[in-house]
Simulated assay, not measured.
Amino acid sequence: MSAPTEQTVPADAARPTVDPRSPRFGAAITAVLLLIVVFLGVAGAGIAALVLLAAIAALFAWGAFAGVRRHPYGALFRRFIRPRLAPPAELEDAAPPTFAQLVGFIVTAIGVLVGLLGIAPAVPIAAAVAFIAAFLNAVFDYCLGCQIYLLLMRSGLVGRSPSAG
């Protein structure tokens, strides 16, 4: 019997799934990058902070619109990390982490836009907010964006997207 892969879909569902360790891996990389943005912004290197935050926003957009399974960090995880790990106990629905990428994109894009308007403190503030979420996901396996997604689903404001992957 072969080990489950991120392309494996449980028999009871036809929606994309993901190894739950993959988004955590991406969150760890993102947290480090966001912390660098905070330090650059506080240290007065505003242009460098703005450029790096814009790159991070683009990565969030990639994950939000192409899906977490197509994100570059997911590819790194599948290529270099996953082969060294035991198979996951179970796969998770890709929709909540994909929605979390959208939340990260919104937060960082607002920071970039306001920073471009000349309000320099917006860049490290947006990066700090996004850092908290990425840190919680990477270290404690607590995904704020996923929790927001689940709350929105329970309230009926968002439906399950079969293409969120």
Rank of each mutant, 00 (worst) to 15 (best):
23 P>M: 11
27 A>V: 14
68 V>Q: 11
119 I>V: 10
153 M>D: 08
64 A>F: 01
144 L>T: 15
147 Q>H: 08
78 R>N: 05
28 A>M: 13
124 P>Q: 14
121 P>E: 03
113 L>D: 05
112 V>W: 03
8 T>P: 00
36 I>F: 08
35 L>T: 11
7 Q>H: 11
22 S>C: 05
124 P>N: 08
92 E>A: 15
140 F>P: 13
119 I>S: 12
99 F>M: 02
40 L>E: 10
106 I>L: 14
103 V>I: 11
15 R>N: 04
109 A>C: 05
155 S>N: 11
106 I>M: 14
131 F>S: 08
17 T>G: 05
25 F>I: 08
140 F>V: 06
112 V>T: 05
51 V>S: 03
88 P>I: 01
39 F>C: 07
37 V>A: 01
79 R>E: 09
101 Q>A: 06
117 L>D: 13
134 A>N: 13
115 G>H: 12
48 A>G: 09
73 Y>A: 08
59 L>C: 01
47 I>Q: 11
46 G>D: 14
106 I>N: 05
45 A>Y: 15
84 R>I: 03
145 G>D: 15
35 L>N: 13
111 G>S: 06
106 I>C: 09
96 P>Q: 12
158 V>S: 06
36 I>W: 09
87 P>C: 04
79 R>F: 02
160 R>H: 05
27 A>G: 07
60 F>K: 04
77 F>C: 03
11 A>F: 04
149 Y>S: 07
30 T>P: 07
95 A>N: 06
5 T>D: 04
103 V>G: 10
68 V>S: 10
2 S>G: 13
144 L>R: 12
69 R>P: 00
92 E>F: 15
